[in-house]
Structures are given as C-alpha cells and as structure tokens.
Design a protein around this nucleic acid. Structure first.
Lengths: 342, 342
DNA sequence: AAAATGTTTGCAATCGATTGCAGAGAAGTG
DNA sequence: CACTTCTCTGCAATCGATTGCAAACATTTT
C-alpha cells in the first residue's frame, strides 16, 4: 500500500486518489475551501498531510499566468543603502501574498546583460527597478512586459511610474543648513555626472546657494558615491591653500562624507571645528560614529513600502500616480557648526 | 496578416507557423541549434525576431523540472556583510547559467514563516542558506527538497554541507594579537548566545587567552552584533573602575567595534591610546575610518564563490566536501597598540 | 408531486515548451 | 538498382495544477 505514492513527490492526483476524490476537488480544497463540503474537505486535508503534498509552482504559474513574485533589481547589492528599502518592500509585499526576490543588475562589472531575464511575466508579476542606468529603452516598447515601477533612481524619458525622495529639496536643505550656520564657501562632493540622483541634488544645492540674499561660493569635487572618492576629495581639499578651502562640505552620499571626515581626521584636523560636513541618505552607521554625521535622511522603509504598494496597484490594474515624491529631512547632528574664524 | 499573431505574447507555435515549421523545430533551434538544417534554422531565427518571441519560463520549468535559479536565504538583507558574499555568489552562478535570487528570511521580525516557500524544487534548483536559526529540522527529513548548502552560518546537527570561515581560528587570532601587544586583560563583546558564530569565536577567544605561558584575564560584554549593543558595551566599559577595564577589546562584529570606538571617543578617550580594539568581518567601511579598524577579515567574495560552486556540484550530483573552512586573516590597522602604562 | 433552486463534484480542456519515437528523404554502399 | 545509413523534421505525449461546464444529488417552493 506504500507504493501508492511512488518515491518521488506527491502530485495533486496522488492526493486525490488517496482521498478518493478527483484532482479538481483537491485543488479546490487548497485554493478555495469554501466551496467544498465539510466531510470531503476533511478527507482531502488528511490525504494532503499523509502524502506531504506540496504544490508545484511551475505548474500553477503556467496555468494561472502569474508567479506570485515581485523582483527588485538593484544596481549593487553591496550598497547598504538598499537594505532598509528592501526590507520595507518585502514586508508590504508579504502582506499582499507576494514574495520579494532581489537580483543584482551588476551595473558596474559585466554590463546589464542579465536585465531582460527578469523583465518577463513568466518570471515576475511586477518589477521594481532601482537602477537608473538600466538599458530600459530596448524593452520599453514591448506590450508584454510585467508592470514596472522605478524606485530611488529613475530613467529620464521613460514612461515609468517613479517613487523617490525629493532629491532637489534634499540638496537645497543641506546647503541652506550650512548657510544658516554662516558658511559662505561650500564644497560639493557629487556623484557620477550621468546619474539622475547627482543631477537632482546638484540642482538643489545650486538653488540653495543662490537663493535669498548674498550668494555663496561653490566648489565642486568629483565623486561617485564611494568611499574612495570621498577620500580623494579630502586629499583635494587638503591640497587647497587655506583661504580657498570651503568651510562647509556637502557630500552627496554618507559614504563619501565618512571618508572625507576620516581624511581630515587623519590629517590632524577636527570636525566640525575645522570644517562642517553634511552627508546624504542617513544610513544606519553614521549616527553611531563620533562625531555623528549631520545628514539628509531618506525615509527608506517608506520608499520601499510606497514602491511596493504601487507595484501592487499596477498588478491589480488600478490607477496610480506617475510620480511619488517623499520629503527629505535634515538630521542635525555633530558634524556641522559655524565656520572657524578666519 | 498582422492578426496572425494576436496582440498577446508570441508562443512557440506562433513562431512555428510563421516560419512554416513545427513547434518542435523551433524549440530545437532555440535550445540545440546543431541538429537543425541550416536553412531551417535561418528561417526560424527570422521568425523569432519578427514575432519578438520570448520563452515562457513557467512552461519550460514545468516541462524540464528545473528552474535555472538558485535562491540565497539571508537572515537580514540590511546587513552589509552579506553584500560582497552575494556578489561573489552571483558571478559564479551566472557563469554556470544560473540566476541568483535573494530572499530575506525575516529572522528578526515575523518568525521564519516564509522559509519553506523557497525550499522547493519548483522554485529553485538549489538553496544557499545563510541563516543559522532557520527552522530546518521540520524539512530536513523530506527527500524532495532541492539541494541545500549553508554558508557563513550553519545549523548544528543538520546534515548539510557547510562553507564558512574558521571562526574559532579567527577568535584565536584576535586575542593572540592583543596578547602579543602586551594586553593582559581583554574584553569580549559577543553575539547572541545561541548563535553558532558567537560560539565558535568565543571558543577561539578562550583558547587564545589560555594557551601559552601566562594566561590572560577575560571580561565578557553581552552583544548581538548590532551597533546598539556595541554602544551599550562602551557604556559598560566606561562605568567600570579604571583598574577593572580591559585594555584590549575584541568585538565579534565590526559594527559593534565601531560603535564601541565611537562611545570611547565621545567620552573624550582616544583609540588606541586608551584602549585597543579588534573587530570581526572587515566590512568595507572600517578601513576608511580614522583610526582604521584592526579586524579579522573574512574572504567574503571567496565564501560566496565557494558556496556557489558547491551548490552547483550538488545540483549536478557530484560529490562534495561536507565542510569547507576558509582561513581568516588579521588586518592590522590603527586601532591596536600596546596598552597604556598603568 | 412536479418544478425550481442550490450544493458538490468530476470531466476534460488548457497553460506553453520539450523530447522520444518514427517517418521522409538524402546520401552512401555493394 | 536495391539496400543500408544518416540527417532532418513532425507527431503526440508529457510536465502538474486550474477552472468552465455540466451532471448528480439534495433541498425548497409551488
């Protein structure tokens, strides 16, 4: 009698045979128990337990033309910035019965070859794209893509819904804060020039510098969001003759801000005594440093949740807002102070 | 003639009709071109291009009984430690034609309910489990699971292949380093007591403390790998009367080491002048701090690559080693020095 | 008691790609 | 020319779950 169920995995029909019903009935017990008579349901449940039945996802997906998965594509899993966002996303999606899977677009290394592997309705019911450099143009025209929403980064010109921080406002806040403290010369450590986040923050910083009475001098240091580039910026700053050094620094990422600060520290200077620093993102670590970094906070969990809610709406065919802007917030901590007397 | 291909997505049979061949032939062109005559192949290729055909994964997976995916289950996507590991893993798997998907087991928050959703051959061809607390016991008996390998963490008692750092040796190295500098009283900031990494590092630390001539005094501070707990340890340390303060600190994670260091700094003390600190993991950030953290390095990309190679071997049915231990390495930087004269 | 309504269940088609088997034709051999 | 050997292609079954439709039976309603 043991051989009823061959060694392999139990199928729906195996359960059905055991319970003395048809496969259809078992299917219904599992996905819509209400329509099945009580006694039958019990019998099926028992058969399920006895056989250890577990559904075959491939078969269900094929039949239902859906996967129950949302895939998030991030440019670099190594960036701790995404962690909290993914967390918020995962929880929101779990609540709606979807699984979140994360894949790295490998932006840096081997080109985006693997992107289209996931942009496929038989792979995911929805895509949350967090890589603004993804070559989306090739695919945008196709009518058979699963719904896509961009989060954090976005693709200029692509007709995709967006969820992101008001980066321009963030740039403005950072510069305004330094100005309010009395800094008249501000250094900007930017991101990669082609990056949309860089551009928005840069624009905000300029607006903040030039609005109101008495403009501010701006000096730009090239950067790419990494600590290496923050370190280079510190070197460049140190190499400047004293009067040409900006007294306030606005780094477009917390990582660059950290590395910059370490660079000054290593040269025997102190923050904020010798220079004030404002970062961007508010990654967890920077509040635990000493001095704790003043920075522009992104509501990361909230971004994740919002993006998830929007992809769920799109999957369900509901109307959605094309752009969702979240408000940045200045976290004033220990790395900013009035400039040193000159 | 346009209506040949209805608005939806082109199927294999649509391509076939267009090329004037059977679906079988199209399938063969796509997966095994060698067996198809040149002219036919050309025609099919053209039809594929014209229809914009893209394969339906669900159908293929169902038929082939494989998915082409490996799922990595991490306890907390928020931990930057995993980033580099996943990176190494992803590259290795990509090279073998597999996609890497990452899912969070949500260890902290809502129990491990979602774990078994992925432990399923119709979901993944292999699983890389990085969560030592996963309730694997419930599933271990089942013969129908996809191959599983544990990486970084492991499950004591479970018969699963393991890839990890020699954590004991790492603990030993850290303590030996502090002893060599002359520290006779060493503080340990541990992880959660039930955690296997904690236990191995703890054992190594004790061995390092008691081997050789003249033992060392050990003081333990509770921790859980987070920065909060590192901060608490700093408070506890500061509250100790001067002669009872360990002069050397070995934190079982870089994050705790950072927070501890900030705590001392905030209290007006300097590292390594007033205390030496050794961390664990060598996450990217700590080499960019000032002072740069002395720590035990884990070869993260290598761990990822090894784990990937092992899961590939298991998928292919090849024999594998049950345990793969990687060697830790002491990264001597700026946070360790001889103890202050008492 | 006949008819109408409601509840359960099974049949069979379907989702889309893959592959063993065999047939059709081409090429080579005695 | 008859016969074997290849090469190429199509037929049809298969993977496993879902669901529209209708049959079978129970329950009310007239």
């Amino acid at each position: 009698m043991e051989s009823q169920t061959p060694p392999g995995r139990a199928r729906l029909s195996d359960v059905a045979r055991r319970a003395g019903v048809s496969a259809s009935t078992v299917s219904r017990v599992l996905s819509n128990p209400g329509v099945v008579a009580h006694a039958t349901r019990e019998a099926v449940m028992q058969a399920v337990a006895e056989t250890g039945y577990r559904m075959n996802h491939a078969a269900r997906n094929l039949r239902k033309q859906r996967t129950g998965c949302v895939v998030a594509l991030v440019p670099n899993l190594g960036n701790p910035f995404f962690a909290k966002i993914l967390d918020g996303m995962g929880r929101e999606l779990a609540g709606a019965g979807y699984d979140l899977l994360v894949a790295d677009t490998l932006e840096d290394s081997g080109r985006h070859t693997r992107l289209d592997r996931f942009l496929d309705p038989s792979r995911a019911d929805g895509i949350i794209l967090m890589d603004g450099l993804a070559p989306f143009g090739d695919l945008a025209g196709r009518a058979d893509l699963p719904p896509v929403v961009t989060a954090c980064e976005w693709i200029e010109g692509a007709d995709l819904p967006r969820v992101m921080l008001d980066n321009r406002q963030g740039g403005r806040l950072a510069v305004a804060h330094l100005r309010a403290l009395g800094h008249c010369h501000i250094g900007l450590i930017g991101g990669p020039p082609g990056n949309v986040l860089h551009q928005a923050r840069h624009q905000g910083a300029h607006e903040g510098a030039h609005e109101g009475a008495g403009g501010v001098r701006l000096t730009e240091f090239p950067g790419d969001f990494t600590m290496q580039s923050g370190q280079r910026a510190a070197q460049a700053w140190l190499a400047l003759p004293r009067p040409d050094r900006p007294t306030g620094i606005f780094a477009f990422s917390d990582e660059m801000a950290c590395a910059f600060m370490s660079g000054l520290h290593r040269a025997g200077l102190a923050v904020p005594r010798d220079a004030s620093i404002v970062g961007f993102d508010d990654i967890e670590l920077v509040s635990h440093l000493s001095p704790a970094l003043t920075t522009i906070r992104q509501p990361k969990r909230e971004i994740g949740r919002k993006a998830a809610r929007i992809i769920l709406d799109r999957i369900a065919g509901r109307e959605i807002a094309p752009v969702t802007l979240l408000a940045p917030r200045l976290m004033e901590r220990e790395t900013t102070a009035p400039p040193p007397p000159s």
